[in-house]
Design a binder for these strands. Structure first.
Lengths: 70, 70
DNA sequence: CTGTGACTGCAAGTCCGTC
DNA sequence: TGACGGACTTGCAGTCACA
């Protein structure tokens, strides 16, 4: 059973790659710290739903996409 | 623009009603405090993804259902 | 059975820098 | 460009008494 943070990590990394932007740029877009974005993409952070919402908006995807595997 | 916590609040309340269980019972199922569940259903809490996952599992719905309106 | 304010502990989230 | 560490501040996690 995979931890949900790891799923989010993979998804954020994936969709950020699709957008072709750096962690730093995503950090700027979401108004979050670059090290925090890094932490999320490594699965070591357990973000709140509001943070996830910010990221989803910045990445231009539905929040569900960030959460669900596949 | 509705706050995402309010959306989650409404959804948790809705799906808990569908299950026909009390906040207290949901609290027990999720291993969370009764007053904490209450706080979420009032939209005053900004839960982390792990908390949301617990609730979704206990409610037997996909996490996406808890997040999305409609 | 639920709403609410207040509280403590620790994680969320920031900012510095290095490799 | 991103991983990672340390120290820091803010806010959530989790609990209680009481209405």
């Amino acid at each position: 059973m995979t931890d949900i943070c790891d799923i989010i990590a993979a998804n954020v990394r994936h969709f950020r790659g699709m957008k072709g932007i750096s962690q730093e740029e995503l950090a700027h877009l979401t108004d979050l710290d670059r090290t925090y974005i890094s932490g999320i993409e490594r699965g070591v952070r357990n973000p709140t739903i509001r943070v996830l919402e910010k990221i989803a908006i910045a990445l231009d995807v539905d929040i569900c996409r960030l959460i669900s595997g596949g």
